[in-house]
C-alpha cells in the first residue's frame, strides 16, 4: 500500500484511518492496530508534515506499508532536510515534564517494536510485529 499524504496537519487523522482500515486482519491484533499503530503513525505523519515539509500544501509525505508474515512495516518519508534523532531531551525528566512539545519520538519508540531512520533523517520506518 502506498499513499501520498498532503502536507496538511488536518489530513493526519484521515490518513491514519485509511492505513489502519486497509490492513488485512490477522497480522496484528485489533488492539495493536487500534492504539499502537494509529498513535505511532499519527506521530510520524505529524512530525513529517510539521518539520519535514513545513505544512506546505504543495508538498506531500509518502507512506508505504509493507506486510510480512509476522510484521507490518510502515515507511513515512518527507522531502525535507531530515533531522538527527539522537540526543533528544528526555521528555520525562522533571525539567521537561511541563513542556508542550518533545514527546513524539519517545512515544513512537514505546509503541512499536522497532524504529529505524534513513541516513538523511527524513524517513522513518515503524515495525510492528505480530502478537
Amino acid at each position: 500500500m502506498k499513499l501520498d499524504v498532503p502536507s496538511d496537519l488536518g489530513m493526519v487523522g484521515d490518513a491514519v484511518e485509511l492505513v489502519a482500515s486497509h490492513l488485512p486482519p490477522g497480522t496484528l491484533s485489533p488492539r495493536r492496530i487500534s492504539f499502537n499503530l494509529r498513535t505511532a503513525l499519527a506521530e510520524a505523519l505529524g512530525n513529517a508534515i510539521r518539520y519535514g515539509t513545513g505544512e506546505d500544501p504543495e508538498r506531500v509525505v509518502r507512506v508505504q506499508v509493507e506486510l510480512e508474515r509476522d510484521a507490518v512495516r510502515i515507511y513515512v518519508v518527507d522531502d525535507g532536510h531530515g533531522f538527527d534523532p539522537t540526543g533528544l531531551p528526555d521528555p520525562t525528566h522533571p525539567d521537561n515534564l511541563e513542556r508542550e512539545y518533545g514527546r513524539g519520538l519517545f512515544v513512537i519508540r514505546h509503541l512499536v517494536d522497532d524504529v529505524a531512520f534513513n541516513e538523511k533523517g527524513n524517513g522513518i520506518c515503524l515495525t510492528l510485529r505480530a502478537g
Binding site: 487500534s34 492504539f35 494509529r38 498513535t39 499519527a42 506521530e43 505529524g46 515534564l97 511541563e98 513542556r99 508542550e100 512539545y101 518533545g102 514527546r103 513524539g104 519517545f106 512515544v107
Partner: peptide
C-alpha cells in the same frame, strides 16, 4: 481511541 504527543502537549 487514541491521543498523540501533540494531544498530550495541548493538555499540558
Amino acid at each position: 481511541g487514541y491521543i498523540d504527543s501533540s494531544g498530550l502537549g495541548v493538555l499540558v
